[in-house]
């Protein structure tokens, strides 16, 4: 589904070269739920941006759903983002002037769907997140958790191959965070690949696999928990907890 080989990202100024990612290698299989953790400045957001084709990279190869996306034009990147990737942002990124239906329609319009198809997908997506009755509400009329569910509905409406979630519960209280996480787990169980960047060790533990990024490189701990599809190494949880705790300190 997602394969990064020796991907590097270097930010250059006149005086300094900053290596945000160095020889970054990652394989994510179809249907996986991967949590990406790491200390601030470790390169999590850069990884997310590159994975979501939001920005380019300096070296290496990146294959997404079998397509080499290393040197795509701006238009082609936009098309792949629109058709294959669903984004969930920490700040929800809903458009305040548009109601929920119109917000969910945004990527569908860029995809060229007709009004009937858009309406069907909006309805289905809102039903999936339990907000079908709030079609005409504005984002400001919803709680944070509800707004994030709308953002998830927007991501799902395009029926993407995988979801990229950037701190999806970062702006939510624990109850709402749990609800959103349960929703993401349900989506993953329905077959959608999810990559989630998070600071929250509890959330990270609930993913099938944890990727720890430190100094722009991957420290890979495979962590299969009870209740997930491939339970095998429960001890890894202890290691990841330590790492995450250190990172947050």
């Amino acid at each position: 589904m997602l394969s990064m080989k020796n991907v590097s990202k270097v930010f250059k100024t006149d005086l300094v070269e900053t290596h945000a990612l160095r020889d970054f290698n990652l394989e994510v299989n179809e249907g996986e739920f991967v949590a990406v953790t790491g200390p601030s400045g470790s390169g999590k957001t850069t990884f997310l941006n590159i994975a979501g084709l939001l920005e380019g990279f300096t070296h290496g190869d990146y294959f997404l759903d079998g397509i080499n996306v290393s040197n795509l034009s701006d238009n082609k990147s936009a098309t792949i983002r629109n058709e294959k990737i669903g984004f969930i942002f920490q700040g929800f990124n809903l458009i305040p002037d548009l109601n929920l239906a119109e917000n969910i329609e945004v990527p569908l319009r860029y995809r060229g769907f007709n009004a009937k198809e858009r309406q069907r997908r909006v309805q289905e997506a809102l039903e999936q997140v339990g907000l079908a009755s709030r079609l005409k509400h504005l984002p400001t009329q919803l709680s944070g958790g509800q707004q994030q569910r709308v953002a998830i509905a927007r991501a799902l409406a395009g029926e993407p191959r995988f979801l990229l979630a950037d701190e999806p519960t970062g702006n939510l209280d624990s109850l709402m965070a749990r609800q959103v996480m349960e929703l993401l787990e349900n989506i993953n169980q329905a077959g959608t690949t999810i990559i989630m960047v998070t600071h929250d060790p509890e959330l990270a533990r609930r993913a099938q696999r944890n990727i720890q990024i430190v100094d722009g490189q991957v420290c890979d701990f495979t962590m299969y928990h009870q209740g997930y599809r491939h339970v095998s190494d429960i001890n890894a949880a202890t290691d990841i907890d330590k790492l995450v705790a250190n990172a947050d300190r």
Binding site: G52, L54, D74, N75, A78, T79, R81, N82, E83, F87, F89, G91, N93, I95, V106, P107, Y110, R111, R154, G158
Partner: peptide, 16 residues
Amino acid sequence: TKQIGTRRALGAKKRN
């Protein structure tokens, strides 16, 4: 600015 970035992330081309 953020809204435009979001639109671009969701698949808007420059011409959109």
